[in-house]
């Protein structure tokens, strides 16, 4: 069972639909037993970092997620869900994340419009099974005002938006996607398909 973690933020339905289209069954749940018994975890999210981490703590999910991932369970963080994987965020203050990936989340300090919203092209930095079915220059759909600053070796693919925006990151059993694969047409579909094969 693959669990989409429901902590009260974000449109989980479209993430579930996205996986359904590639033939991966998921269960939307906030139940601790479901999370413990799952084969893999998906952490979605739209909204503010502080609210998200607070909700994860209130629902006693934070420690369990960390524990399960440290045991080797696969996790995929999408959008805010990817940002939560990092050590810290500086979104309206300073908040601790799950600390599964080294680095922090910072606000765009650029002359271009913020949020970074729309279709941007991906540059592939590193070979990785998650980009197996896509190619350099494929477009994906982003909506965010903060981005990850972490280790270069974790970045699989990125987009240019005055600064280098990590689009897909991977460290061991941990994957993060800053854009919305479930809203990124065929390219997004192919990323989710590749992810399904990774966790199989």
């Amino acid at each position: 069972m693959n669990v989409i973690i429901d902590y009260g933020l974000g449109n989980l339905n479209s993430v579930q639909k996205g996986f359904e289209r590639v033939g991966l069954e998921t269960k939307i749940s906030s139940d601790i037993h479901d999370i413990k018994n799952s084969d893999s975890l998906i952490l979605p999210g739209v909204g503010a970092f502080r609210d998200a981490i607070k909700l994860l703590e209130e629902k006693n999910l934070k420690d369990i997620i960390i524990e399960e991932v440290k045991k080797g369970k696969s996790i995929l963080g999408i959008c805010l869900g990817m940002q939560l994987l990092y050590e810290k965020s500086f979104e309206n203050g300073e908040y601790d994340g799950l600390g599964l990936v080294e680095g922090y989340i910072k606000k765009f300090d650029i002359s271009l419009k913020v949020p970074h919203m729309g279709w941007n092209d991906l540059k592939i930095q590193k070979e990785n099974p998650i980009v197996r079915y896509i190619k350099e220059g494929d477009y994906v759909y982003y909506v965010h005002s903060y981005y990850a600053k972490g280790r270069e070796e974790d970045v699989v693919a990125y987009s240019e938006y005055e600064v280098k925006v990590p689009g897909i990151i991977n460290k061991d059993n941990i994957y993060g996607i800053q854009f919305h694969p479930e809203k990124s047409g065929n390219v997004g579909h192919n990323i989710l398909k590749a992810y399904k094969e990774i966790i199989r």
Partner: peptide, 8 residues
């Protein structure tokens, strides 16, 4: 509609 599409 939302169930059928995968764009914003």
């Amino acid at each position: 509609v939302a169930d059928e599409i995968n764009i914003p």
